[in-house]
């Protein structure tokens, strides 16, 4: 599985909620790195075929790491830093569009 290369024991930690699990992760890390380090099997299902997907490029290009972060669907987890109290969910298929969301 994926392991961090550097020692994080002396780093400041924040807690995020990933699918109901409380993860203690180093401040300043991206959501995708934090979730990968927690041995996540997948982070989204694809919009067309529904197959499991996970972060790939880690630099904002491939859009494989889309997740629902603090209620915002299709968020690029590799481009967003973890924040204390953040709620992170897998992105299941395509997002919806509702009139309420625009208010």
């Amino acid at each position: 599985m994926l392991k961090r290369l550097h020692d994080i024991s002396d780093r400041r930690k924040v807690t995020i909620d990933f699918e109901g699990m409380q993860l203690e992760v180093p401040a300043g890390e991206t959501v995708s790195a934090a979730v990968l380090a927690a041995e996540t099997d997948y982070t989204r299902t694809s919009a067309i075929s529904g197959v499991h997907r996970g972060p790939y490029c880690q630099m904002g290009v491939c859009f494989e790491c889309l997740m629902e972060i603090d209620g915002v669907p299709n968020s690029q987890a590799c481009m967003i830093e973890v924040r204390h109290g953040m709620t992170v969910r897998r992105q299941h298929g395509a997002r919806g569009v509702s009139d309420e969301a625009s208010v």
Partner: peptide
């Protein structure tokens, strides 16, 4: 002509 593409959504 210029085009833009958004993220995917369910059929809307």
């Amino acid at each position: 002509g210029q085009l833009m593409v958004t993220e995917r959504t369910r059929p809307t």
